[in-house]
Amino acid sequence: MKIGKQSTPYQAICTSNPETIIVRGHDLVDTLIGSISFTDYTWLLVAGSLPDEKQRRMLDATLVAIAEHGLVPSVQVARMTLAASPEAVQGAVAAGLLGCGSVILGASETSGAFFRDIREEAQASGRSVEAAAEKLLRGYREQKKPVPGYGHPLHKGHDPRAERLLAIARELDVAGIHCEIAKTVERLIPEIIGRPLVMNVSSAIPCVLLDAGYPLLALKGVPLLARTAGLIGHLLEEQTRPIGFVMSAAAASAIEYDGPAPGGFVANEN
């Protein structure tokens, strides 16, 4: 069954014959293996060309920045999945990645789209970046939509990861229109939204990568790729120092039952 619009059936990522494997036009064995880093390879697979030094360092910095963030929900579900099914590391990794959405790790994609919209509004209207950002921010306020990539429950004054990524972008002379937009939005938020919200790492990642030439539609894959490495580290530790059932028991003790029960019943799940 044909689903959706389809054009000529081609793909331009990989092909092979019995002697040679070609990835994005490069001989995998003779040119890529042992010659480029995994960060280089990621850029090649996604963008279709090998990165220059600045692009490599910028992507590498974002991957390092977001790979690990403690016992967030995606990590907890991965560790508890492995505790329940110790033979299925791949299932535990998948469970952790499935828990990455608009609240955890998904904001890089939405922030990138937000910055694109501001850039296009400025270009189309001939107005300044500040005027375009103000227009879109007021629209977010009227619709009561959260501004993607701003605010953090722990990092109130500034997100050190975001500041470091922006500093690297400046050092590499990569910072451009999207970094300008990101900082302009942060400056306008207190006046328009009514309270200060700092740039977090999920808005820093798209602004520095877009300025480096990374594709907008692939932004969500960056935190997913990075967090996969973090999940594997947690799952190795779960096999040697398990806490999956400890977390499960802690949840049971922290959450009280308030539904109906027979008279005289006293809950004691321990």
Rank of each mutant, 00 (worst) to 15 (best):
182 A>G: 05
111 S>H: 00
148 P>E: 05
188 L>R: 07
139 G>M: 03
209 L>C: 08
130 E>Q: 13
185 V>N: 00
169 A>P: 06
243 I>Y: 08
146 P>L: 12
231 L>P: 06
145 K>R: 15
182 A>C: 13
193 I>E: 03
227 R>L: 04
159 D>I: 07
191 E>I: 08
248 S>M: 13
205 I>Y: 00
168 I>C: 05
149 G>Q: 02
126 G>I: 03
210 L>T: 00
204 A>F: 02
124 A>F: 02
109 E>G: 09
131 A>T: 11
189 I>Y: 01
232 I>V: 15
106 G>V: 11
233 G>V: 10
119 R>G: 03
117 D>H: 06
172 L>T: 08
223 P>S: 01
154 L>W: 09
214 Y>H: 07
124 A>R: 12
245 F>H: 15
170 R>C: 09
168 I>D: 10
125 S>E: 11
191 E>P: 03
192 I>R: 01
232 I>K: 06
140 Y>N: 05
121 E>P: 00
158 H>L: 13
119 R>D: 14
225 L>H: 04
154 L>G: 04
132 A>W: 02
239 Q>S: 14
158 H>G: 03
156 K>E: 01
115 F>I: 08
237 E>S: 12
227 R>G: 03
169 A>G: 12
227 R>A: 01
121 E>I: 00
201 V>S: 06
204 A>V: 02
150 Y>E: 10
157 G>S: 13
139 G>Q: 10
184 T>K: 02
109 E>I: 01
190 P>R: 07
123 Q>C: 10
195 R>P: 00
200 N>L: 08
222 V>A: 01
235 L>S: 09
229 A>K: 11
148 P>Y: 01
234 H>G: 04
218 A>T: 06
190 P>S: 11
191 E>W: 07
213 G>C: 03
178 H>T: 04
231 L>F: 13
234 H>S: 05
245 F>V: 09
149 G>N: 03
191 E>F: 07
205 I>T: 14
157 G>W: 10
208 V>I: 07
220 K>S: 12
204 A>D: 03
244 G>N: 09
240 T>S: 12
201 V>T: 07
240 T>D: 09
229 A>C: 09
173 D>Q: 15
192 I>A: 04
235 L>H: 07
156 K>A: 11
141 R>I: 10
162 A>Y: 04
133 A>C: 06
217 L>D: 15
159 D>H: 05
242 P>T: 07
247 M>Q: 15
233 G>W: 05
178 H>M: 11
202 S>V: 07
119 R>I: 02
215 P>N: 02
105 L>K: 12
236 L>Y: 14
136 L>Y: 03
176 G>R: 04
151 G>A: 08
224 L>Q: 13
137 L>W: 03
138 R>W: 01
205 I>C: 11
107 A>I: 06
122 A>Y: 02
175 A>M: 01
124 A>W: 01
179 C>N: 02
238 E>Y: 09
203 S>Q: 05
190 P>K: 08
150 Y>G: 11
214 Y>R: 05
210 L>Q: 02
244 G>E: 10
223 P>I: 04
157 G>E: 14
183 K>S: 13
